[in-house]
Design a protein around this nucleic acid. Structure first.
Lengths: 163, 163
DNA sequence: CAAGGTGCCTAACAAACGTTCGGAAGAACC
DNA sequence: GGTTCTTCCGAACGTTTGTTAGGCACCTTG
């Protein structure tokens, strides 16, 4: 907390004029990150083809991670340290986001545009590959965000056997 | 440290009859996990087909994660908190493991059995998908380890456009 | 101008942290 | 049989942790 305070030019105790607890702060951060993922996903028009929707989702997901690498790291790691009540709230958002992906992939399979053995496992596979990028992707690195998005979309569409 | 001590029926201070520091303990754990991944990979006979080698690597990777979910979690998260010197040692092992995967995938591409735009990105993609499983896979869950391995191998081979 | 509110400080709190130390009890070795 | 070694305890150390409290300076509002 004293580190956070210093980062905004305050003394440790002064933070508590603005927040109630460290946990509230953590929740706020994690919650905002989750909300960004959902907002991104729900902004993708369902009228597009499955392929296009997936491409947009991949790009959007990687964009959110890239734009706030710091928050993303906290988002993926520290939500476990929230109280059960707050943890449940975050989990609800996460599930909603995952359900969105599942829905898109499921719809693709139903239309015969994708082909996977199990939609649930396939969804987890895709999100796993995307989530882990926060571990190694660094803006300004060898790979641009656009390049990464394009290649990842390609790999994911191939994995889902897109026609 | 007091928690760790209690887990082996000792008092906090008594641990220090056996170890030098908390960091040494963390390094030991992280190092062993890394070694397990490498040992698994290097036990896969290079005489097999590319497809078989990848299937074995996928299964092996998921097995290591599943067998020590706790260690895996620490391995993936806490290595960042080691001193630069120890961090470098771990990083060397991790790079060696990644290089092994890169070599197999690269060889597959060279032989025309796989087809990817960039071998390096494809390797990161595959390892990303595999690594993240520690976040959600739980033994005894909906999906058996065998089922998961088989499906993941299938998804990965499709992503790499295996012939 | 008085009154209240806001924003921040310094100081302190209790608890938890990693670690050290002296000593006690038992096992192993000459 | 005495000595050394090992294993562990209990207590303490200095630091860091999240958080609270009292007070000062400033701004806003009646």
């Amino acid at each position: 907390m004293r580190d956070l305070a210093r980062a905004v030019n305050l003394q440790g105790g002064s933070l508590y004029a603005h927040i109630d607890s460290k946990e509230e702060l953590l929740f706020e951060l994690v919650n905002r990150a989750a909300a960004r993922f959902i907002a991104m996903a729900e902004a993708v028009p369902p009228t597009l083809t499955i392929r296009e929707r997936l491409e947009r989702l991949v790009e959007g997901h990687l964009e959110v991670i890239a734009e706030e690498l710091g928050s993303a790291t906290v988002f993926f790691h520290e939500w476990k340290f929230l109280s059960p009540a707050l943890q449940a709230k975050v989990k609800a958002l996460r599930d909603r986001y995952q359900a969105y992906w599942l829905e898109v992939i499921g719809e693709g399979v139903r239309r015969g545009e994708l082909e996977v053995e199990d939609v649930h496992t396939a969804t987890l596979f895709v999100l796993s590959a995307l989530n882990w990028t926060y571990q190694w992707y660094r803006p300004g690195g060898r790979l641009s965000l656009e390049g990464l998005s394009r290649q990842y979309a390609q790999l994911i569409l191939a994995a889902l056997r897109a026609k």
